[in-house]
């Protein structure tokens, strides 16, 4: 069987789609609305304990990477079909490259905090 990278990208895209659909809404409601607007008020010490646990950090990284691949893959085809930008290679490099840069940033943030 021929080796092709696209099946693996698509598998990660799908995994990221599931993660974004299942995990992200509650996180957004909490972090973007409930906490800043004071609907809930967990102490800073509690949240600090949470983000400093290795479990949280590994889990976050495992959720974030497929979501980035998901976004990059989807946006790539949106740019290509929706906006008809025909520089296929350039668009792919920008999208997946951007995802890779963000994944490295995530790694740095999650290992240094």
């Amino acid at each position: 069987m021929k080796f092709r990278v696209l099946p693996f990208v698509w598998l990660t895209f799908s995994g990221g789609g599931v993660v974004a659909a299942v995990f992200l809404p509650v996180l957004v409601v909490l972090l973007a609305f409930a906490l800043p607007l004071g609907w809930v008020d967990p102490s800073h010490a509690h949240l600090e304990g949470l983000v400093q646990s290795w479990f949280t950090r590994i889990a976050l990284f495992a959720l974030i990477v497929p979501m980035l691949v998901h976004a990059a893959h989807r946006f790539r085809y949106t740019v290509y079909d929706g906006l008809q930008v025909k520089h296929k290679v350039l668009v792919a490099l920008a999208c997946y490259g951007g995802a890779m840069v963000l994944a490295m940033a995530a790694f740095l943030v999650l290992t240094t905090v």
């Binding site: 992200l24 973007a32 974030i64 979501m67 980035l68 976004a71 990059a72 963000l102």
Partner: peptide
């Protein structure tokens, strides 16, 4: 926005 919220989360 998926990408944006990942950044926001970080």
């Amino acid at each position: 926005f998926v990408a944006w919220f990942v950044v926001y989360l970080l």
